[in-house]
Design a protein around this nucleic acid. Sequence first.
DNA 1: TCAAGTTTGTGACTCACATCACGTGCATAT
DNA 2: ATATGCACGTGATGTGAGTCACAAACTTGA
Lengths: 247, 247
Amino acid sequence: MLVVVFQPGKALPGKGSAVAEIQKFLQNSFSLEGLSSDLAEQLSSLARPMKVAAGTILFENGDPGNGCYAVLEGSMKVSILSIEGDEQLLAVLGPGDLVGELALLDGRPRSATVSALKAAQLAFIDKAAFERFADENPAVYRHMLSIVGKRLRQANDVLAARSFLPLPGRVAQTLLQLSETFGKPLDDGRVLIHYKLSQADIANMAGAARENVSRVLNDWKRAGIISRISGYYCLEQPEWLKQAAAL
Amino acid sequence: MLVVVFQPGKALPGKGSAVAEIQKFLQNSFSLEGLSSDLAEQLSSLARPMKVAAGTILFENGDPGNGCYAVLEGSMKVSILSIEGDEQLLAVLGPGDLVGELALLDGRPRSATVSALKAAQLAFIDKAAFERFADENPAVYRHMLSIVGKRLRQANDVLAARSFLPLPGRVAQTLLQLSETFGKPLDDGRVLIHYKLSQADIANMAGAARENVSRVLNDWKRAGIISRISGYYCLEQPEWLKQAAAL
DNA sequence: TCAAGTTTGTGACTCACATCACGTGCATAT
DNA sequence: ATATGCACGTGATGTGAGTCACAAACTTGA
């Protein structure tokens, strides 16, 4: 199973330049934001660059976890699959996000399946190396803790939405969540979700049937709450959506 | 709001003995299991003992978080409330569990409401003090990380159940989860959930209407899958339930 | 030990949402 | 251009589970 992790990846051509690239990236990355730059630099030297093609499964639920990945480019999806093949999308992650970080924390197997939505470039950080490094730099631990904390909060939010909100509310929440990762602000507070999303994806995040998501989305489009700009969804009235997603 | 946190608590009578009690507890507590005993001891000296009466709200969603609590005795419930007053129970925690730990990680406000189900005895650990201590003892951070990791895994499991399992499956999952915290093993692998639970509690955890939980529970009782022993639920066939809760 | 409250069991009704079943548009390959 | 395939839109239909409404069975405490 170890193989699975490395099999899809390929080392980048020039090692030196790759490290530089990773460093440059990590320094302004979201996931390492707040970490002093020398720490980020040191950490990046532990990372092993790799590329995955769109659709590649990075690891699956139940695999042993031996490290985590930073997303440098492209996007990954984190999901849970049911026996019947239904999918619950937990998150779509883009550049700057960390994925598979749970494995660094306890030694337990992967709790979800992660695959590449688009071809992606990653930096793999080995568990042992990470621990060695972090033990000497508690700031790294603190930082990690805040990332995991955020994930936990988000998970709770989603669960709350699933418990309390009717379908439209959940769709609203999903759009807002996506806008946090992929949103580009336009004029007036309008937000463009700069990412190719199928209705099926949204449905899998919101935990709803695709058909019904379609209905909701069209109602909103007709009401001017959202629009589509050359294939991308655009939130015309984010405030309205926030209202709809309020518990 | 700060007041809220301290108002319901009362310092224990003899400080010396209280500290000893906390120490003794923390050493075999679940939440600090795996931490070397001298660290646990030092940590316990940072804790401030307090008692809360049944029903007391320790803190509410949105309150600023200034520290976390270890449950020494009694039990607490962690829940999210909707506007309409509906409740989604996230967890019921007993002796040895840590509650409110998210506040230690990032500085954000409380993400859930915690209240005492039964009168409880707690140990409060201040955020600043904790950080000071943990910075010098990275093992504490690592330990913390594994606790939060477990929470996150659990949250994902619940979300998955909500997405994929029909009502009976969710009830099964809930019972199994409760048996993890409060279960006493009997002969044959039967497990007694040694805790007074109302159907309403179970329903709030499973995210279902109380009436339907009642129906499911009775079906199972009739089928010999569970039973009630002097008011406590007893899992006669945990394996069957695990099957029912499988995704 | 009796009354007042709370928790439970069960039937009947309702409804939000999933499912089914197509039609339509727009891609990419042939 | 034309076929083959996806992503989308929309009605019709079915159903799991929520809601309502009580009666029965327990706690509790005065």
